[in-house]
């Protein structure tokens, strides 16, 4: 086992933990943190797996940099939306998101709005 493979395995583990949280946690901010954890896991895999050839490979480093930028943008957007949602609805979770999702009743809970 090379150190780089260790990185990759750690990344996979982070991914797993993140996924677990992402699906099970309903509090939106914590869900977002879980997403970030998962993202870091993926970046670790990307850098770790690519090291198996001789010498460091610059490409994954560049990719991860870009990836981090994208992840920050996504997180920022999510935080804005969650904050605004909290202001409007006073909630920190989508209503019963997990159960609703499973039963595909997404459409039901969208209340009647006059006009559009």
């Amino acid at each position: 086992m090379t150190p780089s493979l260790l990185y990759a395995l750690a990344g996979a583990a982070l991914c797993g933990i993140g996924l677990f949280g992402f699906i099970l946690i309903s509090h939106l901010l914590r869900k977002l943190l879980a997403f970030n954890l998962m993202g870091s896991g993926v970046f670790l895999v990307l850098v770790g797996l690519a090291q198996h050839r001789s010498g460091p490979d610059p490409v994954p480093q560049a990719l991860v940099l870009t990836g981090i930028v994208v992840a920050i943008a996504a997180t920022a957007l999510a935080v804005v939306l969650i904050r605004r949602y909290y202001h409007l609805a006073g909630k920190t979770a989508l209503d019963d998101a997990a159960r609703e999702t499973l039963r595909d009743q997404g459409s039901r809970q969208v209340r009647e709005e006059p006009g559009e």
Binding site: K31, V42, L46, L49, L81, I82, Y85, L94
Partner: peptide, 27 residues
């Protein structure tokens, strides 16, 4: 906003799955 957040969560999960695949391919 609720619809948007739900959409965002689905989209982020999808992107990460895709990116993990890319990482495996590149590795």
């Amino acid at each position: 906003l609720r619809a948007a957040i739900r959409y965002l969560m689905a989209a982020l999960l999808g992107s990460l799955a895709y990116l993990l695949g890319v990482a495996l391919f590149y590795g």
